[in-house]
Write a protein that binds this DNA or RNA. Structure first.
Ligand SMILES: Nc1ccn([C@H]2C[C@H](O)[C@@H](COP(=O)(O)OP(=O)(O)OP(=O)(O)O)O2)c(=O)n1
Ligand SMILES: [Mg+2]
Length: 1265
DNA sequence: ATCCTCCCCTAC
DNA sequence: TAAGGTAGGGGAGGAT
């Protein structure tokens, strides 16, 4: 092992991770603080040397390959003398000026290119003004009509974006054609790239590059298209053909030129070789053998007197030496092999054999160092390393395995200092204690744990915010479509806030885009700490951390105070100067800063601030992507474009930085509202906006311009890139010998892909040049629901383990219900103590080093039907658990995840059927009926329990949940509580299937009894009431299907908070589409409801249609019915891939299975009437129960494919228009519950997906008008 | 090719 | 004391 130590080990301390040294180095800062503003420090340090925005990422060390880092050297010699020296070095080395300087100065390095881009950008922005609808005319009026008479189509991704080009075209007199359907009309096709197929397709057309447009505009006259013919050659160069890429490519070229291309290839031979080497040794090797004597001396630490003001240099010095030393004395030796463990320690004074990291479970490596902390004792490295790099599926994975050198541990010892936590070891001796404080305790343990878990809160909030944002956006859209609820109330929640401003709404169809887009990354500074300091002003300016341990006696000499394994959730910037970082253990933090102040968690406060924050963002942004409780990505392209218009008009001089101005405006709003500082980074893509935030922090904003990108990237550590963590950084270092983004940019894409896979490779390749095509995502629906606990898991008996599994299952079931979903696949995740790890982990009650296993199986209430039942889940989970055959006493972590979800956002309950409930076409299926009580769906007992449980203790604590928080209000959601009960109590009603001819029998049979009953009732109602129309708040909702009830409620809570207003009474009046066309006339076609039913037409809807549509529908329907039942099965092939493993009960799926294949039928329908009919059938089949998830997925997938092609676009539009119409005809778009809500949400969900695609293709949203 | 399972990794 | 959760991207390797 020793020999394996990589040469880099020479820098022992450093080799592994400079974090600690760095921290020490920076500890000096406080002394200088007075003169240096935090921002400056951050910038200086962060750029060249590293230090992520959150301090999370850290550069690895200076391996020989790494370019000399001033910090490193200074650190070692305590030379960190002064901030100045650091600055100086940086400047020399990295030309820091070029990027440290504010954007005002532009990039000195790439002036030529930068200027070009800037000019181009400015120009485009002007053009963009067209975006403003109201300004369109004005803008256009002032431009020469150079494109007059031309009909131009823009194909695929282009640079500039479609919207920009479109604006240019229209403003200059040309006609823009979104589709090519009427080829005859189009005179020119603009494309940056064409697929071979399109080349053929367009062979008779004039295909030009976007330059033709831009150059013509610049020239003020129409240039010859022949000079801009798109050559095949160009196309070939583009990999995936994304216009964006093209632009970025330019960027890249500029960058490369500057950077001077390095030998692109590492010798091919090298690569493979390296790879091998890596696998063989990887972390293990390097880690282990490092000599332990640190360059730094180990003299005793010197404590600062007052945390607040460390003194200058002297302090520095002392601090520097202090840290290491202290570790020594203390239990957590900093530089000495910490990991020795009890179990089998190794006593190598100088060299460590192998330290297996503990793996922190997750990720986050605690210290964020990227490398997981070491929990584990030494382990045989071979073994470990192998596992790391490659594992056979069947092999148990080592949980987060990672090797850590003692050195590493020393740097970030977290709780890796001991073989096992002495405290825990002692306490666990006492059976009584264990029974009361560990998983052995039962359900209470789970609840208590979650209530206190910050990470759990973080995750919960994130998902809640995602939903909130999605709902708010959907409402905005609806409003725009003419749905505007009267009462501001209506929940438009966010919309309400936003709209007033008028900013966000402008988006019309979101026309701006590509490289002109303006993305902002907004993030609170030291969120948890900041929130707590609002009420503790006396702590401002001091090193403060948030953690559970409110450790007393901080000054307690080297005692417990520094052995706390409590994690620091957030550290103030003052604390960071000492090297304290989020995720670090309190003990470590105290070693770095003995007087650090600790404050407790205040989850509810975080939630409140977060809601205020998001509300403000919604008011400024066109689009929002929730990233975290304290962080969000927003698209403010339109807002900026709008702002630019005004000023421009009056002056022609240089334009102020509107982006920066907007960022500051947002910061001001948040500050006024919460009293906290947020920082905002802005740029034209997500990746860069995030990087900009690093420079912006703390309490600032930074607009990263294209010309400054290369300079900034070059000096970053690879793991400063979002998405790059310890693992990738290590592999990068060991395989390629690189640590900086600048070096990464020199790597051939093939090399990266070989090492990290096709996708990651490309991602890294692009990221290295500032390219990021990712779009803001605000419509994605979740794919899994899970619950896991990897803390305090200690069982004495199998019974305890079983009980825990069942309790955990209950928790998962509860969560499923909360989001109104059910799943068909479950995965059990198990963490088992690594054989070589000590019984008690280093971290108090932690999982320590573990092997991790996971196994999945289909679940479902009978026949593979999706389920959310705790008992079913619990049963399956326990079965899986037993199948592992582990000794319960060795378990350290358990998790249950449910996938293949159905149901959805507030939507209706996923019904029980395992397959698509609705058949697009009905099949005369030999129905069979069994009517037993719906076992799968209803379980009286368990359900009852769950409900009550939920009410009492929602997750962590209802108070903390974003969802609730507000007092019950409004009528609607309230009923929820009672509803569930009803359902539950529902004794399996034995019903008769009414004779609804319009519903597929098989479908009905598949429905749970309760839902079936409702379906029945609904039909009866529809029959008698020809015009159900406006969703009367009353009836339909009241009887919303069972379980659904509950979840919507929670969701609403959250929405309410954002938007205090909700419109109580959805005015039955506004329907958009048809209203616009004509005042929904009241029927007058002669046909009876019975007849309609036979035609599978919903009478209620039918009667609401205008005459022509009625006729159209009738005709279409008749035609469809005449069609052979073909569509039904043609695609039997994929109809439903049933779950393969039986494990669950009997299933009589086949029959239903074949039924549903909406996309199949749809794909064949080409006439509008036929398409509408298909959609309607599907809709009607589930009109009362809500859409079935699987159907939704299929249709969504199908439509997405449609909008990806010009030809399919039309079909997709027809489908969506009709779907929307069907919904509008019977429910208010804001209906709060029942099937209406489910359908609306389903519609919005799919619409969102399509908009995402359309946005990429054309920069706007799919218009259904 | 594409899917599926079992992980790994990352982020907050 | 301490509360190391969770969703989703992605990859390896086997099955289809
Ligand atoms: N390992 C971590 C990281 C973060 N958080 C929590 C506390 C943080 O306050 C919040 C936000 O995380 P950030 O990464 O945004 O960190 P901060 O907001 O604390 O600091 P900053 O954003 O200024 O770097 O998430 C946590 O509990 N544990
Ligand atoms: Mg933050």
């Amino acid at each position: 092992m020793t020999d394996e130590v990589p040469s880099q080990s020479s820098d022992l301390f450093g080799s592994d991770d400079p974090t600690f040294l760095e921290a020490l180095a920076r500890a000096v800062l406080p002394g200088d603080a007075p003169e240096v503003k935090p921002e400056d420090i951050t910038q200086l340090v962060s750029i060249p040397a590293d230090v992520g925005p959150r301090g999370v990422k850290r550069s690895r060390l200076p391996s020989p390959t790494r370019s000399p880092s001033p910090l490193d050297e200074n650190q070692f010699y305590g030379g960190i003398g002064s901030l100045k020296s650091i600055i100086h070095l940086n400047g020399e080395e990295e030309e820091a000026d070029s990027y440290i300087v504010s954007d005002t100065y532009g990039a000195s390095k790439f002036n030529g290119w930068g200027d070009y881009m800037r000019r181009k950008r400015a120009k485009l922005q002007v053009q963009n003004s067209e975006i403003e609808e109201q300004d369109d005319e004005t803008q256009a009026a002032s431009k020469p009509k150079i494109f007059r008479g031309l009909a131009i189509h823009i194909n695929g991704f282009t640079v500039p974006s479609v919207q920009v080009l479109r604006a240019m075209i229209t403003q200059h007199g040309g006609t823009y054609h979104a589709y090519l359907d009427k080829k005859g009309l189009v005179t020119h096709v603009v494309a940056s790239n064409l697929t071979p197929a399109k080349v053929l397709d367009f062979k008779h057309m004039k295909i030009v590059t976007p330059d033709w447009i831009t150059k013509s505009v610049e020239a003020g006259r129409l240039l010859s298209w022949r000079d801009f013919i798109l050559h095949t050659g160009e196309m070939d160069r583009m990999d995936e053909a994304q216009g964006i890429r093209t632009a970025q490519k330019n960027l890249l070229e500029g960058f490369q030129t500057q950077a001077r291309r390095a030998p692109q290839h590492t010798p091919a031979s090298v690569l493979p070789k390296r790879e091998e080497g890596v696998k063989a040794q990887k972390p293990s090797s390097r880690i282990l053998g490092a000599p332990i004597s640190p360059p730094v001396d180990v003299s005793p630490p010197v404590a600062f007197d007052s945390a607040a003001e460390p003194e200058n240099e002297s302090s520095l010095t002392s601090l520097t030496s202090a840290a290491p030393a202290e570790s020594h004395d203390v239990e957590a030796p900093i530089h000495i092999a910490p990991n020795r463990l009890n179990a089998h320690s190794t006593d190598e004074p100088t060299f460590v054999k192998v330290a297996l990291v503990d793996t922190l479970p997750k990720p986050q490596t605690p210290t964020k160092l990227k490398r997981p902390i070491s929990d584990l004792p030494l382990v045989s490295m071979t073994n470990t390393s192998d596992n790391l790099n490659k594992r056979s599926p069947s092999t148990a994975a080592q949980y987060s395995t990672d090797l850590v050198t003692c050195v590493a541990a020393a740097h970030i010892p977290a709780y890796a200092a001991h073989g096992s936590n002495p405290n825990a070891a002692r306490l666990m001796q006492n059976p009584g204690w264990a029974a009361e404080h560990t998983s052995a305790k039962g359900a209470d343990f789970i609840e208590g744990f979650y209530k206190q878990s910050r990470l759990h809160h973080l995750s919960t909030w994130k998902s809640e915010l995602k939903e909130l944002v999605a709902k708010a956006q959907a409402k905005v859209e609806d409003d725009r479509d003419g749905h505007r609820p009267d009462g501001p109330d209506r929940g438009v929640s966010m919309a309400g806030h936003v709209l007033p401003e008028g900013k966000a709404r402008l988006d019309g169809k979101g026309r701006v885009r590509p490289e002109d887009r303006v993305i902002m990354h907004c993030d609170f500074d030291s969120f948890f700490v900041a929130a707590s300091l609002i009420d503790r002003p006396h702590l401002k300016g001091k090193p403060v951390v948030v953690c559970h341990s409110q450790g007393r006696a901080p000054m307690q000499r080297a005692g417990k105070s520094v052995s706390s394994t409590s994690e620091v959730a957030s550290a103030s910037y003052e604390a960071r100067k000492f090297g304290i970082k989020n995720g670090m253990s309190l003990g470590q933090a105290r070693q770095l800063c003995p007087d650090v102040e600790t404050v407790p968690y205040e989850f509810e406060k975080y939630k409140d601030f977060s809601l205020q924050f998001y509300t403000i963002l919604m008011a400024h942004a066109d689009d929002v992507q929730a990233v975290s409780v304290d962080e969000a990505l927003i698209d403010v392209s339109n807002a900026v474009a709008r702002a630019q218009l005004a000023p421009r008009a009056d002056e022609g001089g240089k334009a102020p930085d509107y982006v920066k101005a907007l960022a500051e405006a947002i910061r001001d709003d948040v500050r006024k509202s919460t009293g906290c500082e947020i920082s905002i980074g802005a740029s034209h893509n997500i990746l860069l906006a995030r990087l900009a935030t690093r420079k912006a922090k703390p309490a600032g904003s930074y607009h990263l311009l294209p010309e400054d990108v290369a300079g900034l990237l070059e000096g970053l550590d690879i793991d400063d890139l979002h998405g790059v963590g310890w693992s990738i950084r290590e592999r990068m270092q060991s395989n390629l010998g690189i640590a900086k983004v600048g070096e990464l940019a020199k790597q051939p894409k093939a090399t990266l892909q070989k090492l990290f896979g096709p996708k990651m490779g490309e991602k890294l390749f692009n990221a290295a040049r500032g390219i990021d095509n990712a779009q803001l995502e605000s419509h994605k629906q979740r794919k899994s629901v899970s619950a896991e606990v990897n803390y305090g898991i200690r069982f004495e008996t199998e019974e305890q383990a079983e009980r825990f599994i069942r309790d955990l299952s209950r928790e998962v079931a509860r969560r499923l219900k909360n989001v109104n979903m059910k799943g068909r696949l479950m995965t059990l995740k198990v963490m088992k103590r690594h054989p070589d790890a000590p019984i008690e982990a280093p971290k108090f009650m932690g999982h320590g080093s573990c092997d991790s296993f996971s196994k999945s199986n289909p679940i479902g209430a009978r026949g593979g039907a999706a389920t959310d039942d705790a008992d079913i889940i619990g049963e399956e989970a326990w079965k899986l658990m037993k199948s592992f055959g582990f000794d319960s006493r060795e378990l350290r972590g358990l998790g249950i995840q449910i996938q293949k979800l159905e149901g959805g956002l507030g939507g209706e309950a996923p019904t029980g059927a395992g397959q698509g409930i609705l058949a697009f076409q009905k099949i005369p299926s030999p129905s069979k009926r069994d009517r037993e009580a719906p076992e799968a769906v209803i379980e009286t007992d368990s359900k009852q329990e769950k409900l009550s449980a939920i009410e009492d203790s929602d997750m962590p604590k209802r108070t903390e949940s974003l969802l609730d928080g507000s007092p019950p209000r409004e009528t609607d959601q309230k009923q929820s509580v009672s509803a569930p009960e009803e359902v539950i109590s529902h004794p399996a009603p034995a019903f008769e299937l009414p004779s609804f001819t319009q519903v597929d029998q098989s479908v009905l049979e598949a429905l749970p009894a309760d839902i079936r009953a409702e379906l029945e009732a609904e039909y009866a109602r529809a029959r008698t009431a020809p015009q159900p129309q406006p969703s009367r708040a009353g009836p339909s909702e009241v009887r919303s299907p069972v379980k659904t009830v509950r979840s919507p409620q929670d969701v609403k809570h959250i929405a309410r908070q954002l938007a205090p207003k909700r419109n109580g009474a959805p005015s039955a009046a506004k329907y958009s589409i048809f209203k616009k066309r004509e005042p929904a006339p009241v029927v007058q076609i002669e046909i009876t409801n019975e007849e309609l039913q036979e035609l599978q037409i919903d009478p209620g809807v039918f009667h609401a249609l205008p005459g022509d549509l009625q006729r159209e529908q009738l005709a279409a329907q008749r035609g469809v019915l005449n069609l052979p039942p073909r569509a039904v099965v043609p695609n039997a092939v994929k109809p439903v891939r049933e779950s393969r493993s039986p494990s669950v009960g009997p299933r009589r799926r086949p029959v239903y299975t074949a039924n549903f294949a909406p996309e199949v039928s749809l794909s064949k329908a080409t006439e509008t009437p036929a398409i509408r009919d298909l959609i309607e059938k599907w809709f009607l089949a589930g009109v009362d129960s809500g859409p079935h998830d699987r159907d939704l997925k299929r249709i969504g997938d199908f439509l997405v494919k449609c909008v990806e092609t010009d030809l399919g676009m039309e079909k997709a539009v027809v489908v969506m228009q009709w779907w929307k119409h069907l919904c509008q005809a019977r429910w208010d778009a804001n209906v709060g519950k029942g099937a209406g809500r489910a359908w609306w949400e389903a519609f919005r969900g799919v619409k969102g997906r399509l908009d995402d695609v359309v946005r990429k293709r054309f920069g706007g949203k799919l218009s259904l008008d």
